[in-house]
Nucleic acid binder design. Structure first.
Lengths: 250, 250
DNA sequence: CGCATGATTGAGTTCATTCAAATGGTGTGG
DNA sequence: CCACACCATTTGAATGAACTCAATCATGCG
């Protein structure tokens, strides 16, 4: 299915840089997108693919972009997970979003990126020149409308994260995160109910606004409650619905 | 300037209901909008005004809408302040946004409002039937593009709130809130540096994710540091730039 | 097999919460 | 005009959740 991209990853590693670029690659012409908002037709995807680059980013490497940097592209996650982060003056880092396949990212303010973006696992991304995309959208009102709906969807998603941060304790926040992970087939086996946690304790901590140690303790808490079972540090058996109930999020 | 709306408030109070409606009122044809994203031309405002209602909502009354309720309108704040709130299963309430004049609100998911909205002070709002607005936007790509930009702006605003909640302690969160208030001339006198806090301790607490008592204590903290001076519980003298520096937010 | 990295555990501390009580301001009715 | 009642704000004290720093334990890689 995505074999083509595996080749790209290899290429990226070969040339030693963290980010490799190829121009003019088509959107993967399947329609397996999550119900995450932007559901384009095949034709629309093809049209869009005419002016996007495909890039590969390794997890360990430098950020995809850094807050304050000049913003001339918008990114789309094809494979992998990207974390949007913001660093405040005191040096404290806060994750503002986790971008899964199907998500767009690269918000700008006054032509500069508002956040940094880092691949938390190896990724393949599509990259759109923002000017071209804007012109295209104005010439295709119905597609633009889908982007508007997607943006509204993203507001809601960010608000949801805000609710999670403001109203739940760490164990519940972790529960929500784990359930969210279970929504991604790449990491969750519906049959065995086994989840492979895709990101490190530290990245989870960033995401749910706590420290890596506290994440570990919260995992203990959930395990003691019988909501999860730890096989290895990254393999968990999950009771999805009990976890969701415990989180007390709607 | 907004005298016309003062009459409306009176009307609302007279008929005893909390929300009064009048159809077909024009957008106030000034161009004093904040740099909050959607900056329409006079012509565009006039076009939009052709299908909006004007409603008045009192601070003490029932919510403007409730989460889960059928969503067929989008709202625009003309005057006043509205708080978007979400209640989770445990009953805990979390504010997701404070809407000031110039802001849109009324996000829906599957045709239902995702949050509740309550006027925290008396408000006048414009109300747009969502279907008509959507059709209109598709027929006016450039206006739709402004709405898209506005939505992107709102994502950023929500992310900013997320950063505030995740990375700052209560005193700093309060500092940010106070500085934000100072951005609104209705409540802040630039000459005397006097701010009239427009909303209650409890609503502030909701907004910055803490309790009313803790808000009071945080005010004490800021006063001891010499960043603000309390004249009455609602009148503060503010050292804007010092406060902003203290908050350590960018 | 040993090192490096990440995960886990422990102990002490800090920050914010909760519950209870006191104070202050506002508006109403006498 | 005053007194009272009501509501919001403020203060106090005890509790608890999560953080930090340090040490120990796995896991994977050379």
């Amino acid at each position: 299915m995505h074999i083509w991209f595996d080749m790209k990853l290899t290429a990226a590693q070969l040339d030693g840089s963290n980010m490799s670029v190829r121009a003019q690659h088509p959107w993967p012409l399947e329609d397996d997108e999550e119900a995450s908002g932007l559901d384009l037709t095949l034709d629309e995807k093809t049209e869009l693919s005419h002016f996007c680059d495909v890039i590969s980013v390794g997890a360990k490497g430098p950020p995809i972009f850094t807050q304050g940097q000049h913003a001339d592209h918008v990114f789309y996650v094809n494979e992998g997970i990207v974390q949007g982060r913001h660093t405040i003056r005191s040096g404290v880092r806060q994750s503002v979003a986790l971008y899964w396949p199907g998500d767009f990212f690269g918000l700008a303010r006054d032509g500069m990126f508002f956040n940094s973006a880092e691949a938390v696992i190896d990724c393949t991304l599509y990259r759109y020149p923002i000017r071209k995309l804007e012109k295209f959208l104005i010439s295709r009102p119905r597609i633009q409308h889908k982007f508007l709906m997607k943006a509204v969807h993203d507001i809601r998603k960010t608000q949801r994260q805000l609710i999670i941060m403001g109203a739940l304790d760490v164990a519940r926040r972790l529960a929500v995160f784990l359930v969210d992970c279970c929504g991604h087939r790449e990491y969750f086996d519906t049959g065995t109910q086994h989840l492979t946690i895709p990101i490190s304790r530290h990245d989870i901590a960033d995401h749910i606004g706590t420290s890596a140690e506290t994440v570990t303790r919260a995992i203990n808490t959930l395990e003691k409650k019988g909501l999860i079972r730890r096989e290895t540090p990254w393999k968990l058996e999950i009771k999805t619905s009990e976890l969701l109930a415990f989180s007390s999020l709607d």
